[in-house]
Simulated scan of single mutants.
Amino acid sequence: MTDGPLTISGLDEIEERFDAFLIDQFGVLRDGKGPYPHAVETLRRLKQAGKTIIILSNSGKRSAENDRRLAALGFDPQSWDWFLTSGEVAWRILQAESRQLSSGIARKCLLISRDGDTSPMDGLDLARTDRGEDADFLLLAASEGDVHPLSFYEALLAPAAARGVPCLCTNPDKIMLTKEGTAFGAGRIAELYEELGGTVRWIGKPFPDIYATAREFLGSIAPEKICCIGDSIEHDIAGAAGAGLKSILVTTGILETATDADRQTLFAEHGATPDFILPSFIWSER
């Protein structure tokens, strides 16, 4: 839109324009404490309107793990067709690589995750190590930035960076929402690894792999009929623009306290402007 994004008060105003929605999880449907008001019902109403819905998340956990977690929070599992995570995309990439290598010797993986989660490497021909000194590659799936300072990760990763060990970051978010507020996310740790001299392959929004996987699932639905909903200009809105899709920016999540001027600055910084702005993930104010 040449005149900037159109502000809408509910999804009912534009849902007829689209056949499919790619919806972010954190910042749109929920925060670190639980679902946003109206989010459960809005997701249900959107699905009842006949839309194909993919929850598109920069979560290092695999799809099934997130399915269960969202359902446990009170969301109806029938409200979405697929919960596609960057962790799921990365797992499939690693599975394909393992088949190609098939040397019989498991690669040593330094997994950085959250709450002891090992799902990003479960079922793969990988051996876990806790040391950067002997890792063959790093799998950066999540951050415990609310537990450890950035210096903790610097000490852990510096030996691997010095050895030129490659890193796969499956959660590009630089800020994460926790029960206590915000903390640095896995994307910030990946940035740190690059600052230390390491190389990072980024999986998730705004990078192409996750959108290609989503488009494959959506089949023949035309790009102009697909709309992305997110709270991050850097990830959700820029990712949609790069994939040639329409987008809606919700002003909850990481931009909850941002002013209109703040948002305009971010639009310019990331070269991406949403088609619509929605105060929160709500079906209708009426």
Rank of each mutant, 00 (worst) to 15 (best):
K47L: 13
G164K: 07
L140A: 12
V147G: 08
V28G: 01
V250H: 01
R45H: 14
T252K: 00
R107V: 00
A39N: 03
A96R: 12
L29R: 06
E256M: 11
I254Y: 02
S86L: 03
L249T: 01
R114K: 12
K205L: 05
G4S: 07
Q25C: 15
G50V: 04
Y36H: 01
S57I: 00
K246C: 11
P149Y: 08
F137D: 15
L6I: 13
R68E: 07
T2S: 15
A72Q: 09
I175E: 11
K246D: 07
F75D: 04
K108R: 14
L126C: 04
P223C: 08
T85D: 10
G244W: 00
F207H: 14
Q264Y: 09
P35L: 02
D67P: 00
S59Q: 03
L22P: 00
A142N: 15
P120A: 03
F207D: 14
S103Y: 07
C227F: 13
I226A: 07
T273Q: 11
A214E: 08
S232N: 03
K33F: 03
I282Y: 06
S232C: 05
G145N: 08
Y211Q: 11
G4W: 02
E144G: 14
S232M: 07
I233E: 10
P279K: 12
K108M: 01
T199M: 08
E180H: 13
G185R: 00
R215A: 15
T118A: 15
A155Y: 10
F217K: 12
L110S: 13
A214M: 08
T182C: 12
L101I: 13
L6W: 04
I237Q: 03
C169A: 15
P208R: 05
V250Q: 03
F137Y: 12
I277M: 12
A268P: 02
R17H: 13
L101R: 12
E195S: 15
F26H: 01
I221T: 11
G4F: 06
L218F: 09
K47N: 06
F281M: 06
L218Y: 06
E256G: 02
E191N: 15
M176F: 14
T178G: 10
T257G: 03
L249N: 02
S103R: 12
T273V: 14
E97L: 12
D262N: 15
G239E: 06
R99E: 09
G60A: 06
S9H: 11
R92Q: 14
L94T: 08
A142E: 13
S103M: 10
T170N: 04
D136H: 14
T129F: 04
I189S: 02
I226V: 14
